[in-house]
Simulated scan of single mutants.
Amino acid sequence: MRRVPWWVPVLVLLATVAQLAVAQWVPGIGRFEGKAFGARLVAYPLLMLLAPATWWVARGRHGSEPAPHAAFTLVMLPFLVDVSGNSLDLYDAVVWWDDLNHFANWLLLCAGLGLLLCRSVQPRWAVVALVTGLGAVLAIGWELGEWFTFIRHGTEADTAYEDTLGDEALGTLGALVAGFLVARVVSRGAADPRRA
Rank of each mutant, 00 (worst) to 15 (best):
A51G: 02
S64C: 03
T155Q: 13
A58S: 07
L49H: 06
Q122W: 00
L109F: 09
L109D: 07
L90Y: 00
G133N: 12
G145I: 12
T54R: 06
L100T: 11
L100N: 11
R61A: 06
L115Q: 13
G112R: 06
T149P: 07
V128Y: 06
L130T: 15
S87H: 13
A93R: 15
P52R: 05
S84W: 08
L90N: 01
S84T: 14
W125H: 13
A129V: 15
Y91C: 03
L134C: 09
R31L: 13
W142V: 14
A70H: 03
H153F: 04
C118Q: 14
L116E: 08
G85D: 01
V57T: 06
R59T: 07
A70D: 04
L116C: 11
V137I: 15
A36I: 12
A93S: 13
L130C: 10
L90G: 02
V95I: 11
F103N: 15
E33T: 14
W55V: 04
A129Y: 08
V81G: 03
Y91I: 04
Y91R: 00
L74I: 00
L113P: 04
G141M: 07
T73H: 03
A51M: 05
P68Q: 02
L113R: 13
L138S: 10
L115A: 06
W106L: 14
H69N: 08
V137R: 09
V131C: 07
R119M: 11
A53K: 04
P123S: 10
L49R: 07
A58M: 13
F148H: 15
F32I: 09
D99M: 12
G114N: 13
